[in-house]
């Protein structure tokens, strides 16, 4: 006998104990994220919910906590999104369509794809430096809505490109063949069959990317978005405030009341993001299994 049955028997119980212990440890790791989320949301709600008054939404920011509100910040963020979204969609979906449907399989295409993967890893603060140098100064756009939108569009482009490419790839070859086999041209096949079939995946990617852009603060700081402004923009060339900038500004204030305002502004921001995430998840689940 090479194996001693007694030894195996003896070792079994510690092995099983180790197994159960490790399982608990893995479960604990999983729960850490959960606990943090609960604590984060809990403390924020506790600190902030009393400050979610009508005045809070209708007042501009102020150095006096009792008068400070997020009107400028919210409207500014909406302006920012109104320009970032179409620019980002135009850039990203166009790029994804080219790479998936038209690009020849050569070194240049490979280079473009690697380049996009690398752009996805560039810190947002570096995109801020790009925006500051090129859009704010070189193009003379100043700290305007359009300068910030261009910067954020470039920043979230890689995310949407990759999500769109994945969505386009899920459209089966058989469906493409069916269209081409009927005498449809390349663009007819792309625009009438492939794009509509991939659109739920693309929209999910867009929503998630835009929700990332909404909360992004560092590039806005770098391109010099003001924290105290008593007007709302009336054109994309105007300066503006943004919700995350407002939070960043308030959290640095020494007065305790500003901490509550910070929390209140965070509640508004998170509510906005959760709503967008929720929509994205619904779209994804609804269309996840179609082929």
């Amino acid at each position: 006998m090479l194996l001693d049955a007694n030894v195996i028997e003896k070792k079994r119980s510690p092995r099983l104990m180790k197994n159960s212990f490790m399982k608990m440890l893995f479960l604990f790791s999983t729960l850490i994220g959960l606990v943090v989320l609960v604590v984060l949301l809990g403390t924020t709600l506790l600190d902030g919910w009393k400050y979610l008054t009508v005045d809070f939404f209708t007042n501009f920011s102020s150095s006096r906590p009792s008068r400070a509100g997020i009107k400028g910040a919210i409207l500014g963020t909406l302006w920012l999104m109104a320009f970032t979204t179409p620019i980002a969609i135009f850039l990203s979906v166009g790029t994804a369509l080219y790479l998936e449907e038209y690009a020849p399989k050569n070194k240049f295409t490979k280079f473009v794809e690697t380049n996009i993967a690398n752009l996805a890893g560039v810190p947002s603060v570096v995109f801020g430096l790009l925006g500051l140098t090129i859009f704010v100064r070189q193009f003379g756009l100043g700290n305007s809505v359009i300068a910030a939108s261009l910067t954020l569009s470039l920043m979230i482009m890689p995310v949407i490109v990759v999500a769109s490419q994945e969505a386009l790839r899920t459209v089966p070859l058989a469906v493409r063949e069916a269209s081409i086999g009927m005498g449809a041209s390349k663009w007819q096949t792309v625009s009438r069959i492939i794009l509509p079939a991939a659109i739920p995946g693309i929209i999910t990617g867009i929503i998630l990317a835009i929700s990332r852009a909404i909360g992004e603060t560092a590039p806005l700081v770098v391109i010099g978005i003001p924290v105290a402004l008593l007007t709302t923009p009336s054109s994309p060339l105007d300066s503006f405030q943004a919700l995350p900038m407002q939070i960043y500004n308030w959290v640095k204030m020494p007065q305790a009341e500003f901490q509550n305002l910070t929390a209140a502004a965070i509640i508004v921001l998170l509510a906005l993001l959760l709503m967008m995430n929720f929509v994205a998840i619904i779209i994804r689940n609804k269309y996840s299994k179609r082929f």
Partner: peptide
């Protein structure tokens, strides 16, 4: 013109491949 050819020469494929429409 392949588009013209494929209009006149229709094709039915191995697996049913309707469009998601």
């Amino acid at each position: 013109t392949v588009e013209e050819l494929r209009t006149k020469v229709g094709m039915v494929f191995q697996k049913p491949n309707p469009f998601p429409k």
